[in-house]
């Protein structure tokens, strides 16, 4: 099939970017979106032009590297998939496809479609440690964890930190990410001692990085490739409320 592409090109973070039109022929419906981008880049290289820079790694939807806003939706029109798992059969012959990078000031553009998401790493670092004894593995069943509880923790732990929630949020908020990261520890017994403190520290870092606040619109949940629920945001709100009132993280006599 034939596609009219409009791709965001930006030489570097401090240069102006703009959409550039490309016509791409012979796109197979079985290709992934990234393979289509590869095809475009091969054509650009043949013509002696600079290829489009974009992030990618595993190409099987688990690493969280790739991510593009495709026709105004983070990770494109198909729900619950990353850009690499989005196949060209979701588009029609002759479609115009607009490709833009994640847009948020805490995610500065490095080049073209590549953004710097290290703000996410700093939010996780701010959360700190969990109190687990090192040494030999504990006996099985010394610390019982309910099945529902562990399932829920795994749902939260599915977050691959791709940043689609930030890209989709009209406020540029990272709440779904932060909530998932706080919840997968806060739901398990091992994460209890620092639970509220972790929530407060992570939200403080999120604010400091320049992300916006949550208005409970739900766009994050809708584009999340791992279908992480906004329930975790409610949970984070609760932990931050309790943690703030209790002065969590403060050491005082």
């Amino acid at each position: 099939m034939k596609l009219h592409l409009k791709v965001w090109r930006q030489k570097s973070g401090n240069r102006q970017g703009h959409l550039v039109d490309y016509e791409l022929d012979n796109v197979s419906p079985d290709e992934s979106f990234l393979e289509m981008m590869d095809l475009l880049n091969e054509k650009l290289i043949e013509k002696g032009e600079e290829p489009v820079a974009f992030d990618h790694d595993c190409r099987e939807g688990i690493c969280g590297s790739c991510g593009m806003v495709i026709n105004g939706i983070a990770h494109g029109p198909k729900a619950a998939v990353t850009t690499c798992q989005l196949h060209m059969r979701n588009f029609k012959d002759g479609d115009t496809v607009v490709v833009e990078p994640w847009r948020a000031s805490p995610f500065p553009i490095i080049k073209d479609l590549v953004v710097d998401r290290s703000a996410f790493d700093r939010i996780i670092q701010a959360g700190g440690y969990i109190s687990v004894s090192t040494g030999s593995a504990p006996d099985a069943n010394t610390l019982p964890v309910g099945k529902e509880q562990s399932d829920l923790a795994m749902d939260a732990a599915q977050c691959i930190a791709c940043g689609a929630c930030v890209a989709a949020c009209p406020n540029g908020s990272a709440m779904l990410f932060t909530a998932a990261k706080a919840a997968h520890l806060g739901l398990l017994p091992q994460g209890q001692p620092e639970r509220n403190r972790r929530a407060v520290l992570m939200i403080n870092q999120q604010d400091a990085e320049g992300f916006g606040g949550c208005t409970n619109i739900g766009e994050c949940e809708a584009v999340c490739p791992k279908s992480i629920s906004m329930d975790f945001i409610a949970r984070l709100n609760r932990d931050v409320l309790v943690g703030t009132i209790a002065g969590a993280g403060r050491v005082e006599a």
């Binding site: 965001w8 833009e100 000031s105 406020n171 320049g210 916006g212 208005t215």
Partner: peptide, 11 residues
């Protein structure tokens, strides 16, 4: 929120 998203998407 405006500081977090100073330039919006074209689409």
């Amino acid at each position: 929120a405006h500081h977090a998203r100073p330039s919006n998407y074209i689409v």
